[in-house]
Design a protein around this nucleic acid. Structure first.
Lengths: 349, 349
DNA sequence: CTGAAAGCGCTTACAG
DNA sequence: CTGAAAGCGCTTACAG
């Protein structure tokens, strides 16, 4: 005994109309082999019966499931919502469902996740790779979204250019002594952002790089970053590679009685959800996830169309999508006297 | 011409071994109709050939796809990562894939999302409903994760009890004049949390409720909440229904020169990612998403097992999972003199 | 313990 | 323009 799907199938329509299932199929798929009049009758009957095509039947026959897999390094990353939402939308626009898999920041889990998706016969896989992973030839169309520095990358935000935007903004405001905050130097995204920042530092200006993960390992997770000392030593602007770190800096400075942006400017990256609601609201750089997702899906769909599912495919040529600077309240003109950690003029928002 | 799957199928194994596909199928599924010796040979050959069962073939035959759908009201909500990660994990543990669909906080989109999932033959759907939506009988097993007040709910955190936890904590610390911050009174989750809070207010103590959405509509998105005035008027503790609002309060207070927790205590809800890294770190209440996800999947799988996919199913009896209080740095003993907005003693962390 | 056969729902050459 | 037939990969009663 086989289980029965609810609703009707092609056979129901065919017998109700006294025609063959082949004709019903052709009529519904609009491939034009059926008279206009019959097409109409078939359509009407299908609607009447509430016919819903079986993806399983179609998949078995065509070898295509119209489902894509999305492998994420860490679903709990704060940027994930934006990414997942954009990709889900782009996929559904292209007529694909989206199966998600979390690689939990672990290489073995990532490999297993990919294998599970392939078992489920996805037509292609979108991967945001775990740091330092190179996606091998997995026998299935793939698009990689990461950074331009990632080998095999398909699409990404132009993180480097985003970094340039930040520094240009800060330099224009007169800042000459900067602190650049990253989390982990093995992240291509972060090193691209910092690379772009450094590339725009004019001669004479200085920028120190501060890696949070190293600091936390040494002093404990969430321990003070010692930002007050940096400010006392002359730093007038802090540029973080993520709003998460910018927020940490912002609240630490607040707590130490250092005013933002009067005493120090702070900038972030990614426009995470709270960035606009914090006081003062955070100047940040945003990626255009909608475009990135659309390009990734488009590339993937093109590769799928070219494949007969029997051979592997090299990634398309990488595309990069520009980032945009959102100037809000945490960045302002540098305080005039460098080295004075106690400027008092109020340039409030 | 039908497209060919990569890899091998049951037939390949069968002919390599000179047995029938039926036997191979039985051997691999371990239903015990095959001799131990043959089972071993089949297993070995399957491994050698890198055999991966076709879900499409199996689905067509069994009527089960082993895929579940997840419908979210708004993927970009900051709590979503926790939810999605927990559900993805629970689903994959139970042997199910997870198809996601974003309802973009819109009833029509939610309906369309559900329809798309059903077209893709999901075995069941998990829904976190949009506010105010009642999930109708959709002809497919469903589990609803929302609040206990939501009709048809399957599992949820015990938001009411979470609210009780917060107030018990604050009252113990000597607070008598509270401000309760919510966003939107039409959210069952939020009204449950606030209901729990109010239920534990002792006689004599007072709590004012402040709805952010109403305020923002009147004064503009992200505009100051006027918290300094509240504090001056005697409020010593602010309990928000979300870390997002707690963070907004925290930074606004900081900015106004009011110290947390020395002058005012602040608490949130949900332990969003930044909560522990902000200075001072946020006292909050966390749900046990892993348990909620496991219960939801378990209930759904049970319903699926009972169904022949031909009739609909009422939701199982609702379960509630207790929340846990995380006491961090933003809550402390109430300042002694009520009405004095300028307490100066340092009870710092 | 093992195999032959039917059938899940669909699409596509091919024949009429 | 329309239909009969084959086949995608699998599982399951049934027969031997």
């Amino acid at each position: 005994m086989a289980l029965v799907r609810p609703g009707s199938n092609l056979g129901d329509i065919a017998s109700a109309l006294g025609v063959s299932v082949a004709t019903v199929s052709n009529a519904l798929s609009g491939k034009g082999r059926v008279s206009a009049e019959l097409v109409e009758r078939v359509r009407a009957k299908a609607a009447e019966l509430g016919y819903v095509p079986s993806q399983a039947g179609r998949a078995l026959r065509t070898g295509r499931t119209r489902v894509l897999g999305l492998v994420l390094p860490d679903i709990s990353h704060p940027l994930f919502p934006q990414i997942a939402q954009a990709i889900e939308y782009a996929a559904s626009q292209a007529g694909y469902g989206l199966l998600i898999a979390d690689s939990r920041d672990d290489v073995a889990t990532q490999t297993a996740a990919i294998a599970r998706l392939i078992e489920r016969d996805v037509d292609g896989i979108l991967i945001i790779p775990r740091r330092g992973t190179r996606i091998a030839d997995i026998g299935c169309p793939v698009a990689v979204i990461d950074s331009l520095s990632t080998p095999g990358n398909t699409v990404s935000a132009d993180h480097w250019q985003g970094g340039e935007l930040v520094i240009d903004h800060l330099i224009t405001l007169g800042h000459q002594n900067l602190l650049l905050i990253g989390n982990n130097p093995s992240s291509n995204v972060q090193t691209d952002r910092i690379g772009g920042m450094k590339s725009r530092m004019p001669a004479g200006a200085q920028a120190e790089i501060f890696w949070i993960e190293t600091h936390d390992k040494r002093h404990g997770h969430g321990s003070p970053l010692g930002l007050a000392d940096k400010v006392a030593a002359g730093v007038t602007a802090i540029a973080a590679v993520s709003d998460l770190h910018a927020l940490r800096a912002l609240t630490e400075l607040n707590r130490a009685g250092i005013r933002v942006p009067e005493d120090v400017s702070v900038t972030g990256f990614d426009d995470l959800i709270w960035s606009s609601v914090v006081t003062p609201s955070l100047t940040t750089v945003k990626m255009d996830m909608a475009s990135i997702a659309a390009l990734a899906i488009e590339a993937l769909v093109r590769v799928i169309a070219d494949t007969k599912r029997t051979h592997n495919v090299a990634a398309a040529t990488p595309a990069k999508v520009p980032m945009a600077l959102l100037i809000r309240q945490t960045s302002a003109a540098a305080r005039p006297s460098i080295g004075t950690g106690s400027a008092t003029e109020a340039v409030g928002p």
